[in-house]
Design a protein around this nucleic acid. Structure first.
Length: 835
RNA sequence: GGGGGAGUGGCGAAAUGGCAGACGCGCAUGCCUUAGGAGCAUGUGCCUUAACAGGCGUGUGGGUUCGAAUCCCACCUUCCCCA
């Protein structure tokens, strides 16, 4: 057995007079971990008589090797919460698994020749060991690993259901393309616009890709009123979905391209009389048709150049707006004006219609663009008190319509409606709702993922793999070549198959699914872990889902959390679940820092294993929960952990003191004071733990520990009050420090596990006192404190306050203007000089 | 570029309209001790003062209020996420 740190033998606990052993975590932690597992105390039945089900889930990890300290921070908090909920009497489901598909496994393969499967599964073994050493209360019988065929089979199954119902489709999409490696890259492989592997600037290229039709649910995804989620996550999702109402309007270009119109979208159609140019994205399909011979060379060069730039660069406001003329003109249908068509890279083909109407007077980017290219800036919405002079900058707000023909004099709001009416009446365009949200690109040109179950047949086209042929197994023993192409594209035994429809030779799809597909429904499989022939057992799912309380990082706000919500709604419409949302309550843990910097595996690392060896899991858990508010994170300090070591050692001492030295009854005031501290500690801990405020819970327990020691040493309390206080301390500390509390619970003579006990209760009658201290202020400044009866009324309190020595001094020569009494807290006397 | 946090002692932090700094680290002094990375006790925001006491103090500048770390406005710094 390993020792923990330096030997500290040879000392004895002086206070209680007995020869007690020291607190050595290694002596007890492993013992209890085995015992809990052998007894299966965390295995959860779907229904327990008299108990309400509570599904508390932490976002499962990617097994990248070792769990780092951030993982410990996250999972300790979730575990403490699940344990707390169990002790509140709920039947708690708290499972764990591994999100084990993904790029790092492949990078390990490419960089060090590791086998992705072996690398991943040995990491999982290691992570599982670390979770056990953490003492986490997972129901391991429900563990799932997404790279197991038993799991990804159902990814494929759901993909097929989506495909059959028009929710999955294949279309040309803009993929990242590395011209050197001649391959597509996942977004994660693009670092600052360059290929992660060779450093070449990545370009966009249109390639056929698979999508999930998340935009079909855009409106419903905006409905979040009933979700008990942090407001900031809801805001992020709303912004990400980006619903805006406006008008699309077509600008006729038949003079240059017969029958064609440039479609643009605007939320400010009231500014349409101020359009003095139209800008196309470099990738816009009309670019080629509209470019006049004299401009061909310039446009070609511009478009070529733009394809090499990232969206970040192109849309940055810091950067100078550039553009190039096409030589073509279009017609503004409202006023019949002939206005120039330009190309500008600040317009993105993938957003909106890929073209914007340029209104320099009322759009900041258009304004800068017009200044640079000497285009007319025409005010059509008058700012208040505008004298007709040239604008210094674009007027973005609303105002009164001017230079707008029949609409002059209207407010912007009226203008928006009446101009839209006219446009619709004349067939020039229509009112439109657009979304920032785009369909979910699920294709990854990678190996280590779920194969997309599609076969391409020369005769039959795109053919789904029949459900009975699932899973399409990911082949083993593939080789990774330097060219970076997915091994699936070269593995003939995988690639070549026969068409399920006609039996002729056919090819498999070689793209794999985005790993966010795995995490979109894993909570359902935790609730329903076993069915082999069906993805889910509806009865089990209904027993547990929606997830009662979900915990994870805020970085998943617009990816995982949005995808999961979409997946849930799609599954609902396909009849697999009967609720609208996957996660009822969401809590984000904060960021663990060290010396003010992010603490992660890459930067500023601190491996948990050596800390556990030296201090023990309970100490590490408790320290992580103590160093800051869990939902906001905190700053790790190497010396700060000593405070927790001392506290747990004191608990070790406190819980083993010989209570027979105390009498059957104690002194009344001491008894009452200990009861007050005990009950108010329970009151504080119950509400703090429920709100994930583990740090203040621990602070309250430290105060209780100190109070217990003082009472015992004074010898003024009864043995039963002492026992009651110690039991409270152990029960409240159990979710945070599960091993030491279990050991002490048993040493105190209890036979069952402390983790199957219920939280202690408190009685408000004990949490209050009959004498209270009031602060007394004069002019809002603290001048004295007075001790009064708890039920004192306003008049008596103010009278007493005025008599206080230091208050009286400040009232001398003053006239009282106002007296304020805040019951139980303070008196404030407002004065002015008397004269 | 978009979005979201956070700024309080030497340090991590409490307090979300009512006594700023709970709890802990660190530090200081003392006790105990074979001089020990142990334990215990007391103290610890800054300034003035022998003391009583007083002044200042929650990133900066304004505002609301009897009263603001907390609410409002403007700004500064910094961190995170997404593109």
């Amino acid at each position: 057995m390993t020792t923990t740190g330096k030997s500290r033998s040879g000392s004895e606990s002086g206070k209680s007079g007995g020869q007690l052993d020291r607190y050595v975590p290694a002596d007890i932690e492993n013992k209890w971990q085995r015992k809990w597992e052998a007894d299966g105390i965390y295995e959860t039945a779907d229904h327990v008589e008299g108990k309400e089900n509570y599904f508390s889930l932490a976002m499962f990890p990617y097994p990248s090797g070792d769990l780092h300290m951030g993982h410990w921070f996250q999972y300790t908090g979730s575990d403490a919460y699940a344990r707390f909920k169990r002790m509140q009497g709920f039947n708690v489901l708290h499972p764990q698994g591994f999100d084990s598909f993904g790029l790092p496994a492949e990078n390990a393969a490419i960089e060090r020749g590791a086998d992705p499967r072996e690398w991943t599964y040995s990491n999982i073994d290691n992570s599982r060991r670390q979770f056990r050493e953490m003492g986490a209360s997972y129901d391991w019988s429900r563990e799932l690993v997404t790279s197991d065929p038993e799991y990804y089979k159902w990814n494929q199954y759901f993909f097929l259901q989506f495909y059959k119902n028009g929710l999955a489709y294949r279309e040309k999409g803009q993929a990242n393309w590395c011209p050197t490696d001649q391959t597509t890259l996942a977004n994660e492989q693009v670092k600052d616009g360059a290929c992660e592997r060779c450093g070449t600037t990545v370009v966009k290229r249109a390639l056929p890709q698979w999508f999930f039709a998340i935009t079909k649910y855009a409106d419903e995804l905006l409905e979040m009123d009933d979700l008990d989620w942090p407001e900031k996550i809801k805001i992020m999702q709303r912004n990400w979905i980006g619903r805006s109402t406006g008008t699309t309007i077509g600008f006729d270009v038949s003079e240059f391209a017969p029958g064609e119109k440039i479609e643009t979208f605007t939320t400010r159609i009231d500014t349409v009389y101020g359009v003095t140019f139209v800008v196309l994205a470099p990738e816009h399909p009309l670019v080629e048709k509209l470019t006049q011979p004299a401009q061909k060379a310039a446009v070609g060069a511009y478009v070529e150049n733009a394809s090499r730039e990232t969206e970040i660069e192109r849309t940055s406001t810091e950067r100078e707006k550039t553009g190039v003329e096409t030589g073509a003109y279009c017609i503004n249908p409202l006023n019949g004006e002939r206005i120039p068509v330009l190309i500008g890279d600040y317009v993105l083909a993938t957003y909106g219609t890929g073209a914007v109407m340029g209104v320099p007077a009322h759009d900041a980017r258009d304004f800068i663009f017009a200044k640079k290219y000497n285009l007319e800036i025409r005010v059509v919405v008058s700012p208040p008190n505008w004298d007709g002079h040239e604008l210094e900058e674009a007027w973005l707000s609303v105002g009164t319509q001017v230079n707008s023909g029949e609409f002059d004099g209207m407010s912007s709001a009226e203008g928006i409606e009446t101009i839209a009416d006219k446009i619709e009446a004349n067939g020039w365009g229509k009112r439109t709702i657009t979304f920032h949200l785009r369909d979910w690109l699920i294709s990854r040109q990678r190996y280590w993922g779920t194969p997309i179950p599609i076969i391409y047949c020369d005769d039959c086209g795109t053919v789904p793999v029949p459900e009975q042929d699932l899973p399409v197994l990911l082949p083993d023993s593939v080789t990774f070549d330097a060219d970076g192409k997915s091994p699936l594209t070269k593995d003939s035994s995988f690639l070549n198959t026969t068409c399920p429809d006609c039996g002729k030779a056919a090819k498999r799809e070689t793209d794999t699914l985005d790993t966010f597909v795995c995490s979109s429904w894993y909570h359902l499989r935790f609730a329903s872990p076993n069915p082999a022939e069906d993805p889910l057992d509806a009865e089990q799912v209904r027993a547990w889902v929606p997830v009662t309380a979900y915990q994870g990082g805020a970085e998943h706000a617009v990816m995982h959390l949005l995808y999961s919500r979409f997946f849930n709604k799609a599954l609902r419409d396909l009849g697999y679940v009967d609720f609208d949302e996957p996660y009822s309550k969401l809590t984000n843990q904060g960021m663990l820092q060290r010396d003010g910097k992010k603490m992660s595996k890459r930067s500023n690392p601190l491996a948990p294993d050596p800390v556990v060896k030296r201090y023990g899991a309970d100490t590490l858990r408790s320290y992580l929960m103590f160093l800051g508010p869990w939902d906001q994170g905190g700053d790790w300090s190497d010396s700060g952990i000593n405070g927790i070591t001392r506290w747990l050692s004191r608990i070790w001492d406190v819980a083993q003191r010989d209570e027979s030295v105390l009498g059957d009854s104690g002194e009344e005031s001491a008894e009452r004071e200990l009861a007050r501290i005990s009950h108010s500690t329970t009151q504080r801990v119950l509400s703090d733990m429920d709100a994930f405020k583990f740090n203040t819970s621990i602070a309250a327990l430290m105060e209780l520990t100190t109070a217990l020691i003082r009472s015992f040493d004074a010898g003024t309390i009864s043995a039963s009050s002492w026992r009651n206080g110690v039991d409270r301390l152990l029960l409240h500390a159990a979710p945070l420090a599960p091993h030491i509390t279990e050991e002490l619970w048993h040493r105190a003579g209890h036979t069952g596990s402390i983790h199957l006990e219920l939280n202690p209760e408190f009685d408000e009658a004990f949490t209050t006192t009959d004498r209270i201290t009031l602060a007394v202020q004069v002019q809002g400044k603290l001048r004295d404190q007075i001790e009064v009866a708890a039920g004192i009324d306003q008049d008596d309190a103010i009278a007493a306050a005025k008599k206080a020595e230091n208050v009286a001094r400040h009232l001398e020569g003053m006239a009282i203007v106002k007296e304020i009494y805040v019951p139980g807290r303070l008196v404030n006397i407002v004065v002015r000089p008397a004269n």
